[in-house]
Nucleic acid binder design. Structure first.
Lengths: 144, 144
DNA sequence: CTTTTATAGATTGTATACAATCTAATTGTA
DNA sequence: TACAATTAGATTGTATACAATCTATAAAAG
């Protein structure tokens, strides 16, 4: 019987390695926009739907305030978002895009295509991977 | 045409999210061993082949000295490895398992199975994912 | 045999992740 | 209505990641 502790036998490692590899390839594309990869994800969420609470953004990205509070403060310092308390419920803060934050969307629009070419992955592989991962995500969430 | 900036359209996000989710599920399994997830990966590499240089370990895990030096110092402080200069070429350090480090392997052996059950993923899905990711990794490395 | 170049690790600085705890605001309830 | 329980964020502390730089050593070039 084969060694269950071989690195290549672990399901975990490919995810860990590929995730970091992809992040690394985003870097040169995001640098001109002044964004890191997690900051880019937050902007994606806000471009879809402006004026969300930290909690809502966090649920979308599976990140908590420990990660998001400093990250959002950086985006605020960059002039891309504003953080204001919700007057209806002062426990919530509303994250709102500034004009600059909205404008950045135009520059970001070219990134998905540029990344696809940088990764050199075919449309079919892309689709296969996406479906496989979605199945896995659903199953994993089911065991929460 | 659909919005190319939708979070769900990004190839990157599922990898990012699943990778972190898997790491999180390892935590309770690794805590009794006193290991973090990246530390566990380093131990896997050393259990396969003892007495490797930092560089060799790093190539296997795609990590550089900036990450590995402090991590290995922690493993050394935990009494699991030793770091000694290679007398033949003093630029290299050899990472060697201590008796405790070798013994920990026995306790680690149950982890892969425990994790599979924790993830609740079937063998078929596991195999499908592994194959899909391997294909993707190969293609991505091809564009380095 | 010097001088240059390359290499392996260590260090520094920035940016996540995330558990654990704290604080303020809101809700539920006796 | 007081008051306990909940909730959203902020904070603290630890552990990665990784680019950039530094240092010591070895190899290559002249």
């Amino acid at each position: 019987m084969s060694n269950p502790l071989l690195l290549e036998e672990q399901l975990c490692f490919p995810f860990y390695a590929i995730s970091r590899e992809i992040t690394k390839r985003y870097r040169p594309l995001l640098e001109p926009l002044g964004l890191t990869y997690p900051q880019y994800l937050v902007m994606l969420v806000l471009w879809e739907q402006d004026q969300q609470s930290l909690k809502a953004v966090g649920e979308r990205l599976h990140l908590d305030s420990g990660t998001l509070t400093p990250l959002l403060k950086k985006l605020e310092a960059s002039g891309l978002v504003e953080r204001v308390k919700n007057p209806v419920d002062e426990r919530h803060i509303q994250i709102t895009l500034t004009a600059n934050g909205q404008a950045l969307r135009n520059e970001a629009e070219q990134i998905p295509l540029a990344l696809k070419e940088l990764l050199g992955v075919s449309d079919e592989d892309m689709e296969l991977v996406k479906q496989t991962l979605n199945r896995l995500t659903i199953k994993m969430n089911g065991t929460d």
